[in-house]
Nucleic acid binder design. Structure first.
Lengths: 337, 337
DNA sequence: TTGAAAGCGCTAACAG
DNA sequence: CTGTTAGCGCTTTCAA
């Protein structure tokens, strides 16, 4: 114990605390010689500055917060990697918070940030988040907030997204091209930006191809895998069952495979499936899965980069902008013939 | 901007800063009435205490560090969930650091913790880590370190692991039972505790079943997926190719599937496969994958809980102990007939 | 080029 | 029960 502090270094070197502090920060008002001495002793005594003392004084924490709905999802895992890669580069620390899709929790987390714990925030909102006043409040305190993936439209800040509308369109168009006559769209939320955009793209594709929306083609699932399985099974048991399915979020994929298996429906013969996912195993599924994969790593990286441009500025100002990084369609046998 | 501070509250209420501070911390030496007034104003002015000022004074940060090799792996994603669930409960914040399997990076990260940034550390060491002096140094500063999954043996602290030796044994025994005569063990490291233990278990099983180890049965892969694919393909191209494979880490799984496909070898007919993985898609792979699944969430949760027992004590002492949470074998068709 | 002093916001003796 | 005082470790005027 007994961490070495600037005070200790100062005493040891017969210097003032101020001089040592300046030497350590390589100030021009300190002689080369003194700097050398200070640095040498600091290294020798393994001096590591107390970040909280520094934060308190300078009013910057050199840490950012990443607020996510969950982490057991390949998209968010990859996004964290992207964020971390940039944060590391800039010498920033990354605090992670999980909302578990709860609005209340998200609100509580954001509120805490008014304390100055973090210099900036990266957030992908919960599935329950409709109102964004909690985010506005934090932003109003001068803490820059960058949205990524799941965004809020009604707040003037930077956003990093993928082309969800186009991807939804592409997914539906692909199924139509493959001969599907009745395409179901599986979603988990009606409030989420990404879900809505994907759904709008899907609707547009149907319309452009003169296909009628029966209204029953959009199926709302939840967070519980078992329940999702039941919902999807029921969907596939119907006489008028779909011959094409778009799983608009990763976690619905397995349920579709399982339901098909249990009902002895063959993918892609009886029903074709396309999923929005970054699963590394898509290629080795049975059958290999056609996917819309989001540029998760790049989105994380970009969001972090955008945040740091704001943190570089004296006012921390983030101009309103929306960076769109396209998703890619990878065709595999789950939609083949 | 202009965060409200205790000082502001105090002025507003005609109280001393000390009294306000005590009231906020619900001290017994403050009258009920005053507490009410303080709390009311604090709420009204949306007072959020500055955590760094508090940390500086009290010498606790209410934050822990989680140091991981990577996050794009289902094990670590789940572990983070477990850790977060406990941290959240205790009102702790979670800083995340990725070593990307680099020892140098791990060392740099750990060194930073001497500063008092965190109260405790949860770590799963990098694949390059043989020497643990960097960890000892931090522990010597009085910061409790709990290992989980990938541990170091030579340091006296708490560890949370799964039964790797037994799992390795079980995996091999299962393949033997299924009729395999030549079982390859795929690993990515020779220094990692988990890899070694799994391998020892594998060796023991072979020995117990009177199977000879040719010495070529242990295959060292790396971190690059393409290279791993080549290594595994070469393995399967050999005349004396294995009829059973144990993928001792998750990321080698896909490569085996792909190599088999390209060589038109059928799983499980030509080669049986068992993987150490928490992949949620194991069940819908082609064929469904027999797995040893680690209790990732529980391990994260337990590791965090153990850390917090230490943080609860005045000396932060962590008694040397090794908590073992068993993995489970789930038999599916990849090892079937 | 160096040092003295003040203070970031909060807490912990200690007095009153 | 409330207030005064003295810092936590660091940075930043400002003066020497």
């Amino acid at each position: 114990m007994g961490n070495t502090t600037i005070k200790i270094l100062a005493k040891e070197l017969n210097l003032s605390v101020a001089s040592v502090s300046k030497a350590l920060r390589d100030s021009h008002e300190i002689s080369h010689e003194t700097k050398q001495k200070v640095l040498a002793l600091a290294r020798k005594m393994n001096y590591v500055p107390n970040p909280y003392a520094s934060s308190l004084r300078r009013r910057v924490s050199k840490t950012i917060a990443v607020v996510l709905p969950e982490v057991a999802d390949s998209f968010f895992s990859l996004a964290i990697n992207g964020i971390e890669s940039i944060a590391e580069e800039r010498g920033y620390h990354v605090l992670i918070y999980l909302t578990h899709e709860s609005f209340a929790r998200e609100k509580a987390i954001l509120n805490e940030f008014k304390s100055g714990r973090v210099d900036g925030i990266l957030i992908s909102v919960s599935g329950e988040t409709c109102d964004s006043s909690h985010i506005k409040e934090v932003a109003a305190e001068g803490i820059p907030v960058v949205f990524f993936d799941r965004i809020c439209e009604d707040i003037e800040t930077a956003r990093v997204v993928t082309d969800d509308f186009e991807s939804g369109y592409v997914a539906a168009a692909h199924l139509i091209e493959k001969g599907c006559k009745k395409i179901a769209f599986l979603s988990t939320s009606t409030s989420l930006s990404i879900s809505n955009n994907r759904m709008q793209g899907y609707k547009k594709a149907l319309k452009d191809h003169k296909m009628k929306m029966s209204g029953h083609d959009i199926v709302l699932c939840g967070n519980d895998p078992d329940e999702n399985y039941r919902i999807i099974k029921n969907l596939l048991k119907k006489k008028q069952r779909p011959d094409g399915i778009i799983a608009s979020v990763e976690k619905l994929t397995a349920a579709v495979y399982l339901a098909c298996k249990d009902l002895t429906l063959t993918i892609p013969k009886n029903v074709k499936l396309i999923s929005f996912t970054n699963l590394p195993t898509a290629l080795i599924l049975n059958p290999p899965l056609t996917t819309i994969t989001q540029p998760a790593f790049e989105m994380g990286k970009t969001a972090a980069a955008v945040l740091f441009t704001a943190l570089g500025k004296s006012n921390n100002e983030l101009k309103e902008e929306t960076v769109v990084i396209p998703s890619t369609l990878t065709v595999r046998s789950s939609t083949g013939c």
